[in-house]
Simulated assay, not measured.
Amino acid sequence: MFSEIGWTVRFLADAACYSELDREFYLRKAALLDRIALLDDLGHADGNATETAYAAAVFLLDMDQPGLICDPRAYVRRQCVYWARNN
């Protein structure tokens, strides 16, 4: 999880503007937020990250597959597995 936080921060620092943010950024961000929400759900993190993780997952799902109806966070998890196998 810490490597994803570092990658996200470095990516944003290097981006000249937010219009440069690509699918990989949104996928990795949604995956990171999903992991934080899982910790929050287990009581290992402070706050309520579930709504933020859900919103990030919905954004990615709408970006990839507009109109697709499924669990957005499960979609992010499947896409992460696919991305990790191919990168």
Rank of each mutant, 00 (worst) to 15 (best):
P66C: 03
A31K: 08
F2P: 10
Y54F: 07
G43M: 00
L32Y: 00
A57G: 06
F25Q: 09
A45I: 04
N86I: 09
S3D: 11
L33G: 03
A57L: 06
D46M: 00
T50A: 08
G67N: 07
L39I: 05
L68M: 02
M1W: 02
R23V: 04
G6C: 10
A49L: 07
V58I: 05
W83Y: 15
M1V: 03
S3M: 10
Y82D: 15
V9S: 06
E24C: 08
E24H: 14
A15S: 05
T50E: 01
L21W: 10
T8E: 13
D34H: 02
R85N: 15
D62S: 09
R10C: 11
E20M: 10
A55S: 04
L60Y: 05
Q79P: 13
R23F: 03
P66N: 05
R85A: 15
A56Q: 01
Y26C: 11
E20V: 04
W83M: 14
R73K: 12
E20F: 08
L32H: 01
E51C: 10
A84C: 12
R78P: 09
L12R: 06
D14A: 10
Y18P: 03
A37P: 14
F25Y: 13
A56K: 04
F2E: 14
D71S: 02
V76H: 01
F59G: 14
L32T: 01
A15I: 01
L42H: 02
A30P: 10
T52F: 00
F25C: 11
M1R: 06
T52W: 01
E51W: 02
R35S: 07
C80W: 08
D22K: 09
A45C: 09
L21F: 10
N48F: 03
N87T: 08
R78W: 09
Y82T: 13
A74K: 05
G43H: 00
